[in-house]
């Protein structure tokens, strides 16, 4: 399977075989990502990080992945301190950075920016989030978490929260459709997943159910994926409180859950998960955040031609 020089832009570019290969590579590299084993597979290589929007987890996990595998990182720093503040186009910025690094990680507020950057770059471009568009490395680490903590094949999963605007949920649903899945979408009426995405999933023979009640699904699922509910989506603050409370994961809700139920969240969480859950065997969200390191290390080694 040829990954060398491939751009990582959208989950739609990946087949199931490709995803499996990335996840297998991540599993091989997990001890390196944990710092338990030393590796120099990325030695002598330089990664450029271009973050036009704030990020903690994504940026730092890319840095950790690169450094732990023996590579180096060039960070653009803040937009205010760079030439972009002088009005340079992204296309020009990419053509310049292209000469400084062996791969580029880009986060940018405009949708489609990573696809455009890839056209101007001779080195691989990895999309670390383009506005409300794609964030494929998040989806890959979600898939890795599901595989690692539960199972991917025919998973029974509930995805809860803001499913109307949340790109995480759209992209994950699409990827899960490659593995066959029973997906229950839990959200208030006003934040339901767009109908065209549901139709698309059903056309891939995926069972999709919709509900607004967590209690209704909790006993039947292997994974509960909670996403952030953004206050600004609600014109009325009391409506936000009501919805947030109805979808909050609290200890009592888990009384009926399967013993092996895993709870995931892309973080940062606001009020979606009660901190009391953190100490239970159900909480996978902090490990999920760590899994970003082996998954991104796998992608970096694959696209830079240093497959372990």
């Amino acid at each position: 399977m040829k990954f060398t020089n491939m751009d990582i832009i959208s989950m739609k570019d990946f087949s199931r075989d490709m995803i499996d290969h990335i996840l297998d590579t991540a599993e091989k590299l997990e001890p390196v990502a944990r710092g338990k084993e030393r590796s120099d597979i990325l030695q002598g290589l330089v990664l450029s990080l271009l973050f036009f929007e704030p990020s903690t987890r994504t940026r730092m996990s890319f840095e950790s992945a690169m450094v732990r595998a023996g590579g180096s990182v060039l960070n653009m720093g803040s937009v205010e301190a760079s030439s972009i503040s002088k009005g340079e186009t992204l296309a020009d910025t990419i053509r310049v950075i292209d000469g400084y690094a062996d791969a580029i990680v880009l986060r940018h507020p405009k949708e489609g920016s990573a696809r455009m950057a890839a056209e101007y770059s001779s080195v691989p471009v990895i999309n670390a989030g383009d506005g409300a568009g794609q964030h494929p490395t998040q989806t890959l680490l979600d898939l890795y978490t599901i595989r690692r903590e539960s199972h991917l094949e025919r998973i029974k999963i509930a995805i809860a929260g803001d499913l109307k605007y949340g790109r995480t949920a759209h992209s994950l649903c699409y990827a899960l459709s490659l593995y066959g899945a029973d997906i229950t979408l839990v959200s208030p009426e006003s934040l339901r997943m767009p109908e065209e995405i549901i139709e698309d999933l059903r056309s891939h023979n995926i069972n999709v159910y919709q509900t607004s009640s967590m209690e209704e699904v909790i006993s039947d699922i292997d994974v509960l994926y909670a996403t952030r509910i953004q206050k600004e989506r609600f014109p009325d603050p009391t409506e936000y409180q009501k919805v947030a409370a109805s979808l909050k994961i609290v200890p009592q809700l888990l009384d009926e859950a399967k013993e092996g139920l895993k709870i995931m969240h892309p973080l940062p969480r606001i009020n979606e998960i009660d901190p009391q859950i953190d100490e239970t065997s159900h909480a996978s969200y902090f490990r999920q955040s760590f899994y970003g390191v082996p998954v991104r290390m796998a992608l970096l080694s694959l696209v830079m031609g240093r497959e372990p």
Partner: peptide, 15 residues
Amino acid sequence: RCINPNCISNSNEPI
């Protein structure tokens, strides 16, 4: 023209 006002093809980029 793309219907998404936030699409990179609707910006001042040379594409």
